[in-house]
C-alpha cells in the first residue's frame, strides 16, 4: 500500500469526512491503487514546463462595481437546514 490507514484518517479529517472502519480499509486500498497509477507522471521531465491551471489565458476579468439586486434574506435562508428567519443556526462554536 502506498498510502497508510493513518494517512487516510488524517486526510479524512482535513476533508471534513468521517469514515467507518470498513470505509477506511476500502478507501486505503482504493486510494493506494489510484495514487500508484498516477505516479506514472513522475516518468516525465517537467523541469522547464510552466504549470497550466486553466485552459483560457485570462487575467483580471473586471466588472463594474455597481449595486445590483440580490437575493431576499428569506430566499437565501429558504434551503437552510436550520435557521431562525434571520440567521443560519449551527451547533455552539464557543465553549459553555
Amino acid at each position: 500500500m502506498s498510502i497508510s490507514p493513518e494517512q487516510v484518517l488524517k486526510v479524512s479529517r482535513l476533508a471534513r469526512l468521517e469514515l467507518s472502519d470498513d470505509e477506511l480499509a476500502t478507501m486505503t486500498a482504493q486510494l493506494s491503487q489510484v495514487v500508484d497509477y498516477v505516479d506514472q507522471l513522475s516518468e516525465l521531465n517537467t523541469d522547464d514546463v510552466v504549470p497550466m491551471a486553466h485552459a483560457l489565458d485570462l487575467t483580471n476579468v473586471f466588472v463594474v462595481d455597481q449595486v445590483a439586486e440580490s437575493l431576499e434574506r428569506s430566499q437565501a435562508l429558504a434551503n437552510a437546514p436550520h435557521a431562525d428567519g434571520e440567521c443560519y443556526l449551527v451547533p455552539a462554536v464557543m465553549g459553555d
Binding site: L17, M27, V35, V38, L41
Partner: peptide
C-alpha cells in the same frame, strides 16, 4: 468521498508539488 479524499491528499502539505503541480505541468 473517494474523489474528495484523493483531491485533499493531492493538495495536502508534502504532496502538492509531487501531484497537483506535476499534473498542471503535464496538462
Amino acid at each position: 468521498k473517494r474523489r474528495i479524499m484523493l483531491g485533499t491528499y493531492a493538495l495536502s502539505a508534502g504532496y502538492y508539488d509531487a501531484y497537483y503541480l506535476k499534473a498542471l505541468k503535464v496538462r
